[in-house]
Amino acid sequence: MSNTILIVEDEVKLATILADYFSLTEYNAHLIHHGDDVLPWVKANQPAAILLDIMLPGKNGIDLCKEIRQFSSVPILMVTAKVEEIDRLLGLELGADDYICKPFSPREVVARVKAVLRRTTGKIESNTNNSATSAVMQENMLNLDQHRLIVSFQQNEVSLTSVEFQLLKQLADKPERIFTREQLMNNMYSDHRIVNNRTIDSHIKKLRKKLSDISEGKDWIQSVYGTGYRLVL
């Protein structure tokens, strides 16, 4: 796995400070200050995660997140000075794994990146080793690949974001069990931040669409009115 964090930030001083903090960890940083330079670099390299500012010269962070998600499931953390809930929701709907609001402390940013990477590696991997879940998924030909963040059905597969993968994994661990939005959010965000329920609904909507696309329209995730969601087999 790569140990490079891509920092896309047009404030050079801020980007350099973040890079210095990452240099004190097991990760290093690569800096890009212009939006137009991001896609070629990401396609040629495999960063562990991307810190992506929304306001950039050239191509903006929102458009970049959309385009990166067309070919990569690399964890993306959106960085924004806009604090309105709609902006946070928009970033997550685009396939981002987390958001960070300015102003922030560099220590917080490093901690948040590490938390996302734990969700996409260690935590997911240990859950995927559950033999009962593996048997259920194999029987129904819906298979999860935690290393590549891919779900497959028969010969079809699709890439998921780390949040989508984690949501699907939690539902698949106990198929037919109803999970409330609060339970799903608590598993997604261990720091217990306040997140609008619409955020979960948005992730579920995108996840449903991806699963339907690879399984001839099958609806794997059922809404339970007034309660939450469950995986149906």
Results as ranks from 00 to 15, higher is better:
Gln166Cys: 08
Pro106Glu: 01
Tyr99Phe: 07
Asp98Tyr: 04
Gly122Lys: 00
Leu167Tyr: 08
Arg148Glu: 09
Ala172Ile: 13
Phe153Cys: 15
Val158Pro: 05
Gln166Met: 09
Ser159Ala: 13
Leu90Arg: 03
Gln166Val: 12
Asn127Ser: 06
Ala111Ile: 10
Gln166Ser: 10
Phe153Pro: 14
Lys174Tyr: 06
Leu160Met: 10
Gly91Glu: 02
Lys102Tyr: 02
Phe165Met: 13
Val136Ala: 14
Gln166Trp: 12
Leu149Pro: 05
Met137Lys: 05
Lys169Pro: 09
Ile178Met: 12
Glu139His: 11
Leu184Cys: 08
Leu184Ile: 05
Leu144Met: 10
Ile100Ala: 03
Leu171Phe: 03
Gln155Ile: 14
Asp145Trp: 12
Lys169Arg: 12
Leu171Lys: 15
Ser105Arg: 03
Asp145Thr: 08
Ser152Asn: 05
Ser162Arg: 09
Glu176Pro: 09
Asn140Met: 11
Glu93Asn: 01
Ser159Arg: 13
Thr121Gln: 01
Met141Ala: 15
Lys114Arg: 05
Arg107Ala: 10
Gln154Val: 15
Asp97Ser: 01
Val110Phe: 01
Leu92Asp: 00
Gln154Phe: 14
Ile124Asn: 02
Gln166Arg: 15
Val109Trp: 00
Ser105Cys: 04
Asn187Glu: 14
Leu168Ala: 15
Val163Lys: 06
Pro106Trp: 00
Ala111Leu: 04
Ile124Phe: 08
Leu160Trp: 07
Gln183Ala: 13
Pro175Tyr: 03
Lys174Gln: 15
Tyr99Ser: 00
Val163His: 06
Lys169Ala: 15
Leu160Glu: 06
Ser126Cys: 08
Glu93Met: 09
Thr133Gln: 11
Glu157Thr: 07
Asn127Gly: 06
Gln146Thr: 14
Thr180Asp: 11
Lys114Glu: 02
Ser105His: 05
Tyr99Leu: 05
